[in-house]
């Protein structure tokens, strides 16, 4: 496994950290930080849902899950998560 860590400090917000192993597919992903998510299990479900997918499938999955669960994120946004994932898998 080739795990790497990406950290984004959202201006005026919180810290988002993504530990990821990504080649053609996302083999492993862990999202952490001092942000808030309502409901909290959105983050757990998102991690589960994108594992095993390539980056474009993963982004589609995130968008779908986001629309379905309508979570409220404080301190980070869904675009921050997508942004870091894109960089991590580039």
């Amino acid at each position: 496994m080739n795990k790497r860590t990406f950290i984004k400090r959202v201006p005026g917000g919180k810290t988002l950290q993504i530990d990821i192993d990504c080649n053609e597919r996302i083999n492993y992903v862990l999202i952490s930080g001092d942000f808030f998510a309502y409901p909290e299990d959105f983050i757990d479900k998102l991690q589960e849902a994108i594992t095993g997918k390539n980056i474009s499938e993963a982004i589609k999955t995130i968008t779908f899950l986001y629309k379905k669960m309508k979570p409220e994120l404080l301190g980070i946004s869904i675009d921050d998560i997508i942004d870091v994932l894109r960089k991590a898998c580039a």
Binding site: Q17, D19, L30, I31, S32, G33, D34, F35, A37, E40, I43
Partner: peptide
């Protein structure tokens, strides 16, 4: 620690 935090990190 917060629910989303990594214990070893913080």
């Amino acid at each position: 620690i917060g629910y989303f935090q990594k214990v070893r990190e913080v």
